[in-house]
């Protein structure tokens, strides 16, 4: 004992710890509230998905089962899921590099009248899709463009504003000097793109790709009009079943399965977007450390 009457953070009764504890409690509480705000609507959906029967006034389904699932499959949910995934991935694969190119050109000033070009690129967001698509459809039909290609084309145009905007934010913070440094180290254009540029903007690229995927994934209007019934996606199956009566559990199954791919992608993007903290050097021991 030194006899000093010092109070340290963490000592019982310390006001510092008290404030800390209270702050943490508030944080946990608010997070729980926000999470339940998002999750609560899914509770009835989850219940309906496995309810063969649920009559009023029961609080829970009166008969559990997989009728909804088999009914959804019977209505072509599985091929529709596949089509939706393929369509959204193709849209993301096209709209992301296009958005990145546009954003890079706009940020580094290689485009004449950058303001006008930006507005033109963002225009598809402002336009009501129905109006634009009806007009475009005539054009696509006249040009004899197959409905699948026309659908991809229109969805890519609708996704490009999102990818461009996301990538512009990334390029605004991007330091072109990294690429100059790589050049003085002997890197070719291809090496710079592959080993410097893409890794540096990878988090933004995955965000942009996710947004473009969502544009394709959640589209209904364009698929109906331009796809002309040739392309049946998950939203189309869901909508047609929701329009009928007594399909509640099948609609619930379809809605829930529509949530899974974007969530999985979000988790993947979050994981891929994280910078490696320690690097990959540990794979070859004795190289990174002095003996």
């Amino acid at each position: 004992m030194t006899g000093l009457d010092l109070r340290r953070p963490g000592d019982p009764g310390s006001t510092l710890t008290l404030a800390h504890g209270r702050g943490r409690l508030l944080r946990v509480l608010s997070t729980t509230l926000v999470a339940s705000w998002f999750l609560l609507p899914f509770a009835p959906l989850a219940l309906w998905a496995f309810a063969n029967q649920w009559s009023f006034p029961s609080t829970l389904p009166t008969e559990w089962g997989f009728d909804g699932l088999s009914s959804a499959i019977a209505q072509g949910a599985l091929p529709a899921l596949g089509t939706s995934l393929l369509l959204s991935l193709v849209v993301a694969a096209l709209a992301t590099p296009l958005g990145a190119l546009a954003a890079r050109a706009l940020t580094f000033g290689t485009v004449p009248w950058p303001r006008t070009v930006s507005i033109a690129l963002l225009a598809p967001i402002a336009l009501p899709p129905f109006a634009a698509v009806l007009g475009l459809n005539v054009l696509l039909l006249r040009a004899h463009i197959p409905p699948e290609a026309g659908l991809v084309l229109v969805l890519v145009v609708m996704a490009v504003p999102y990818t461009t905007f996301t990538m512009r934010v990334a390029y605004a913070a991007h330091d072109i000097h990294y690429e100059e440094e790589a050049r003085t180290l002997g890197a070719s254009r291809w090496n710079i793109l592959w080993r410097v540029h893409i890794p540096l903007v990878a988090p933004a690229l995955s965000r942009a790709a996710f947004l473009a995927f969502l544009v394709g994934w959640s589209d209904y209007v364009v698929t109906v009009v331009v796809g002309g019934g040739e392309v049946v996606t998950l939203p189309l199956v869901t909508a047609s079943m929701a329009a009928g009566i007594g399909n509640d559990s099948a609609v619930a199954i379809l809605s829930l399965s529509a949530i899974v791919p974007p969530l999985a992608l979000l988790a993947l993007a979050g994981f891929a977007g994280r910078r490696p903290r320690t690097g990959a050097v540990q794979k070859t021991p004795n190289v990174g450390e002095r003996p």
């Binding site: 330091d175 000097h177 990294y178 100059e180 440094e181 790589a182 050049r183 003085t184 180290l185 002997g186 890197a187 070719s188 410097v196 890794p199 540096l200 990878a202 910078r275 490696p276 320690t278 690097g279 990959a280 050097v281 190289v287 990174g288």
Partner: peptide
């Protein structure tokens, strides 16, 4: 001759280390 073929090294005011690579890489 392009910069990448000149064999002239350059260090800038900012270190510009590639953040996705380890020190050794």
């Amino acid at each position: 001759i392009a910069a990448e073929k000149r064999g002239i090294g350059m260090v800038f005011q900012r270190p510009l280390l590639f953040p996705h690579l380890s020190v050794l890489d």
